[in-house]
Design a protein around this nucleic acid. Structure first.
Length: 219
DNA sequence: TATAGGATTGCC
DNA sequence: GCAATCCTATAG
């Protein structure tokens, strides 16, 4: 520990977030429902410096070692390297050439696992979020779906690797937020492998969940 | 080097 | 139902 790290460590402990990202990936995925995601719009973007935030209402767990849908399944690659980093850091990637997805890294360093953030309920910076979305998009859908979430909050590859426990530019506060009354569980969205594993978690009382539970396939 | 396809989204 | 859009992973 160097002297320059001390203030950050203090901040993390004071916020009660130092250990919130430990434990199993599934535990973290559930724990993140109701947590607060904060983002400061970076320099060079519209509304630079504005704080945007929301309540996380939908997550998916991507498990270590056994999960063929996890980007860490076949070991580190250029894209997936950050998923093998420290728990509580960010893993961001580009999907379909046009949307970004934000993950919270879980498990000890060297183990590839993460939680995908799929949706938030907007709390602050509504105008900044609205501006990034198509005209007429209702507030509840500003950050509904992983690609929309990153678009609304100006999250891209520059966020890769940031420490979500303490970085003011992109920050998650787990303790003290508004916990859900209950947590719904379904299979994950959009997968061709491990398509029926029950690893999607959401607040059934939220209007900002990306879509209804995937319907089970025939047979 | 070639190529299939993807943890999505929104319009037809 | 399907196009947009481009990077990655894997095969050759």
């Amino acid at each position: 520990v160097t002297r320059s790290q001390v203030p950050n460590i203090r901040a993390a402990v004071a916020a009660g977030t130092a250990e919130d990202f430990e434990g199993s990936t599934i535990d973290v995925a559930r724990r993140l429902i109701g947590a607060t995601l904060e983002r400061v719009i970076p320099r060079g973007e519209p509304d630079a410096g504005t704080l945007v935030s929301g309540r996380i209402v939908e997550t998916e767990a991507y498990l270590p070692n056994v999960d063929p849908a996890c980007h860490g399944y076949r070991g580190p690659t250029k894209r997936s390297a950050p998923i093998f980093g420290r728990p509580g850091s960010a893993y961001v990637y580009l999907i379909y050439g046009m949307y970004f997805c934000l993950n919270v890294v879980t498990e000890p360093p060297g183990v590839g696992a993460a939680v995908l953030l799929r949706a938030i309920e907007p709390l602050a910076g509504l105008d900044a979020m609205r501006r990034r979305r198509r005209a007429g998009t209702p507030e509840a859908r500003f950050a509904c779906g992983p690609g929309n979430l990153c678009r609304a909050m100006a999250i891209d590859l520059q966020c890769n690797g940031v420490d979500l426990r303490i970085d003011p530019r992109l920050h998650i506060i787990i303790g003290g937020a508004s916990p859900p009354k209950r947590i719904g569980v379904t299979s994950r969205v959009g997968l061709s492998s491990a398509a029926d594993w029950p690893l999607r978690f959401y607040d059934p009382d939220s209007h900002s969940v990306s879509r209804p539970p995937p319907k089970p396939k025939n047979r």
